[in-house]
Simulated assay, not measured.
Amino acid sequence: MGSNGLNGVKDTNGANGAHANGASLSRSLKPGIYAPIPSFFVPQTEDLDLESFASHVVRLAKANIHPLISGSMGEAIHLTHAERKTLIQTARRALDEAGFTDVPIIAGTGTGSTRETIELCHEAAEAGADYTIVIASGYFAGALNPKALKTFFTDVAEKSPIPVIIYNFPAASGGIDLDSDLITGLAEQCPNLCGVKLTCGNVGKLTRICATVSETSFATQHPRKNPNAPFLVLGGFADFILPSTYVNAHGAIIGLGNVAPHATARLFELSQATLQDPSLLPEAQRLQGIVARGDFTIAKTSIAGTKFLLEKLYGYGGVPRTPLPPIEAEARCVVGAFSRPGARTRRT
């Protein structure tokens, strides 16, 4: 493709829109709804089911839901380095072939050590990821004080070839819960950080972070290393998308996006529209209530429940890799309500 017009850097990877170190120059990180894509496995062998994975990524892209690969929902802890790269490559190929060449890919690269996390960031970039999301390991949670956590994210951000999103999920990191001061401090000091996902459910924290990073002056005083990667504040649950709009947050990364992509994308769009047209607020509130109830149902059964629903809705999904168990029989009736025609109509 030759020069892409950005700092005279030559694009060496064709449709991937990436330069030699894998960093995307064309796929901007934008406000909206992102879904942590499940990793699907072949029954009996537990090999990757790439056909179902590719179909699902494209299905969501058609609903304006962008993919996060190898995250918590994607069972990253159950994947090898090679499998992570394969999933990124498969998603990029599927998106490009379906005409979604501008849809960015976020890849999970958090793991035990700083060294391996950085290694995974490089591998993700080489495979075609545009951004990475990093969670601190909870294995030594008791020893990771705020200073150690700040050093971890600073080191990763400085050495990652692509912009990094901070992932705050206490339940998946041994109870580590980054506070707003630490997150805003990192945002100010690390120009290669491009956002935070808050799966702590702390709306007050989200509000405080937005009060700093969503101010117009922030981008001027603390410019990003990649101008296509502004610092976004993203919720980790679908039940406060509308309220977060009013404190200048930027959307959410949510498991519900996998099973109700149109409803969740519509809620974000409608929430944004209410800022200009308050008459839309009652409809946005109604839809937020529906989505919140759906999100609560999904949250109770997590990965296994989401896969069960996808199997019911679309014919693929399967079960998690062991030792993670499949959904319990008694929970199927509750979660299965999503797959009933009436419920599906209300949520899509």
Rank of each mutant, 00 (worst) to 15 (best):
A54R: 13
L309G: 00
P326I: 08
E119D: 14
F100L: 07
L95D: 10
L48E: 03
D177Q: 11
L178N: 04
R115Q: 15
V203D: 12
E116F: 07
E215G: 12
L198Q: 00
A304R: 09
I162Q: 11
F152N: 08
F140V: 09
K197E: 07
E215T: 11
Y131A: 02
P191I: 10
H262F: 09
G174N: 02
R27T: 06
K147W: 10
T114S: 09
I133P: 05
I253M: 13
Q288V: 06
T345D: 12
A172S: 15
L87N: 03
E97S: 15
G255S: 08
F153K: 07
P163K: 01
E215Y: 09
R340I: 08
Y167N: 07
N202I: 07
K62W: 03
R208P: 00
F296D: 15
A76D: 03
H56R: 05
V335S: 03
R347T: 14
T90G: 05
G289P: 04
T297S: 15
K62M: 08
F152W: 08
N21G: 09
S28L: 11
I303H: 00
P325S: 06
I254H: 01
G204W: 14
A260Y: 03
V213P: 07
P323G: 05
E188W: 04
G342R: 08
S70T: 08
P104A: 04
D239M: 03
L79T: 01
T207I: 04
V334I: 12
T151F: 13
A23T: 14
E330F: 15
V319R: 07
I77S: 15
T151C: 10
T264D: 02
A125W: 11
E269D: 15
T220K: 15
Q44H: 13
P161M: 11
A265C: 06
I133L: 14
E123Y: 13
T109F: 03
T109N: 04
A91Q: 02
G128F: 03
R92W: 09
S72G: 03
A263D: 03
